[in-house]
Amino acid sequence: MGKAGFIALIILWLFLASVAVFFGIPLVWLILSALDPNASPEFKIPSTISMENFIRLGEPVSGVPPYMWIVNSTIISTLVATIVTIASILAAYVLTRYSFKGQSAMLTAFIVFRLIPPLILALPIMILYRMWGMMNTIHGLVLAMSALILPFTMMIAESFLKSIPATYEEAAMVDGCTRLGAFLKITLPLAAPGIATIWLLAFVTSWSQFVLPLMIIRTPSLMPASVGLQFFFGEYGRVEYGKLSAFSILYSLPVLIVFLIVQKYLKRGIAGLVTR
C-alpha cells in the first residue's frame, strides 16, 4: 500500500469511528444506565453493575406495574398485525390477480396514505372517538392503528404477491382447483415467508406507535408501553433514569429481534425504490 493509500485508510477509519461514536453514544448510555442502580444523565461506567432496575420494574408506577404496559402492547400489536395482514393479503390478491377500473389509482392512493403524517389522522380520530364513545378503548386503538399501518403492509403484500407468478394458480386451476383452492393450496404456501414478514413488520410498527395511543388512551392501565413509559418521568422533573432505561431496553428488544429476522427483506424493499 502506498503512502496516499495509507492516509486514505486512516481517514476512512476516523470517519467510521466518529460515525460509530455519534450513533453509539445514546445507545451505550441506555445500556449503562439500565445496569446502574444510581443512574443519572451522566455518561459513566456504573460503580456497581446490577439488574436491580429490571427487577424493580415489578413495582407500580402511577398505580400500574410497568409490565402491564408490555402486556397491553403485546395484545394490541398482535391484534393489529393479524388484522392488517389478513386485510393486506386479501386486497393485494385482488390487486395482483384481477384487473379492474381504478386499480392503479387505488395503488397510488395507498402511496399517498402511507406518507400522511400520523398526527394528521390522530387529531380528528380523537375528536371522532370522543363523539363515538371510543376514547380509552383497546378496540378503538386497534382499529385506528390498523388503518394507519395498512397502507404500508399493503404495498409489501402487493409487491410480494406480484413476485409469485399467476401462472401457478392457472396451472392449479387447469389441474382441477377452484380459484380459491388454487390460492389456498399454491399461492398461500408460496407466500408464507412474505406473510410472516408482513405480520412481523406490522407487529413492530404497531408496537412502536406513539401518537395514536397518546391521543386516544388516557387511562394508565390501558396504555401500551410507548405511552406508559411517560409515567417514569415523575412530577417536578424527577426522572427514574435507571428504571426507565431498563424498561426502554425491554421494550426495544422485540423490535430488534424482528428486524434481525426481516433485515434482508427490508433492505431489499428499500433497494426496490432505486433499482429494478
Binding site: L16, V19, A20, F23, P26, F210, S226, L244, S248, L256
Partner: peptide, 25 residues
C-alpha cells in the same frame, strides 16, 4: 460493521426510546 449496525439500530428502536435517550444525554 460496527458503524452501520449502530446507524441501523438508531433507526429501528421505538421512537419514544430514542427520544428518551436524547433527552437524557
Amino acid at each position: 460493521i460496527t458503524a452501520s449496525t449502530l446507524v441501523f439500530v438508531a433507526w429501528i428502536i421505538p421512537e419514544v426510546v430514542a427520544g428518551y435517550a436524547w433527552s437524557a444525554i
